[in-house]
Design a protein around this nucleic acid. Sequence first.
DNA 1: TAGATTGTTAATCGATTAACAATC
DNA 2: TAGATTGTTAATCGATTAACAATC
Lengths: 218, 218
Amino acid sequence: MPTAASEKTVGRLTIYRRLLDELVSAGTENVYSHELATMSGCTAAQVRRDLMAVGYSGTPTRGYNVRDLLDSIGKFLDDPAGQQVALVGVGNLGRAILAYFAGRRPKLRIVAAFDNDPYKVGRVIHGCRCYGTGEMPDVIREQAISVGIITVPATAAQTVADQLVRAGIRGILNFAPATLRVPPNVSLEHNDITMYLEKVSYFARQGNRREKKERQGD
Amino acid sequence: MPTAASEKTVGRLTIYRRLLDELVSAGTENVYSHELATMSGCTAAQVRRDLMAVGYSGTPTRGYNVRDLLDSIGKFLDDPAGQQVALVGVGNLGRAILAYFAGRRPKLRIVAAFDNDPYKVGRVIHGCRCYGTGEMPDVIREQAISVGIITVPATAAQTVADQLVRAGIRGILNFAPATLRVPPNVSLEHNDITMYLEKVSYFARQGNRREKKERQGD
DNA sequence: TAGATTGTTAATCGATTAACAATC
DNA sequence: TAGATTGTTAATCGATTAACAATC
């Protein structure tokens, strides 16, 4: 397993993986870097460099074998032992995420949801059991959960983040419109939906050429 | 109005705006670049450079006036005439976005939602009227909608994008796990939730120091 | 072999960081 | 005035792009 890749490379690898999944479904056996490039919106040079980062090599005549490459990317991105994820805040957004990830990645599963609403606690939502927030420390430790998703209102986000960190979580994906403080050893990503909408609106006005780029990484 | 800023600068400006909104609510009158820096996770130098990009100047003794700065950022990011937004796909994610943006930005409003479900068509969801997808061309033209949000399943995303582009939309924010093709004059952002989760999980394992950075821009 | 693609190195580009005179 | 902050310029850093020999 190679050493840590850049944030951008990791982001692009997740895009390649989705595209390769589709190629497998379509029965495609081999793919060239420039084909992955046009599909992903990245450049062929980026694709080749990223695939080198995961330690997979292609051949000049056939490009990359789709199945083997998918396997190598999986080995690189996924924890071999699997990682468990918890989601806090079972509102519309939380339910959307639970529905989307249900059964999608065997190595990265949302195994517990938390909410204050007594009507939700105890139920199974999109295959995921919902617990009361007071049970967070116990459930997170018992199920060896290492990543937390925050889909609560902004006012509660920092409190939830602190609870997750105290319970031993190593990474947080935050959807709340708030800037969180976490210890340096905890990985933090902020999916700022407002930012996305304001950015796309700004550049829509500018009429800028921004076909693709996707998001690729960072 | 200054010329187009970089993608990263625009992204950070949206973060500053949220923080400044909070400062106004708290009654704070002035703020220094280093204060905005610690609140946003950016550096003080980035803050100063970004604020210069919007054409606002501070003073060495008092820093920046919160209200005036907020006004300048608004003039920079927002269309003075306002921009109308449409959302396609009123599932859990679509409803979450409608709820979140309801009445939040007067200059950037989601004025129409579209869905195939006859049960949803005709209803008002979080203050936004829901139309049938067949009405997209007419509604988009009549209401001068310039930005579209795609929250449909991946299999339908490209079709919806094509419809939006044909109806005259200038920017698309895509939440579906699919790489879309749009003309070069249409701004495109892809909010890839899977990518976020896989990235945070990867770096959680690496135990990397990644406190903050937020997302800031790009 | 001929030819397109691969892995790899050097050049380019842009943003971040550091440094500093000007300012209140 | 003294001192911290501002706007601005130069140096640094990292990623992207371009170029090319090696490969099947």
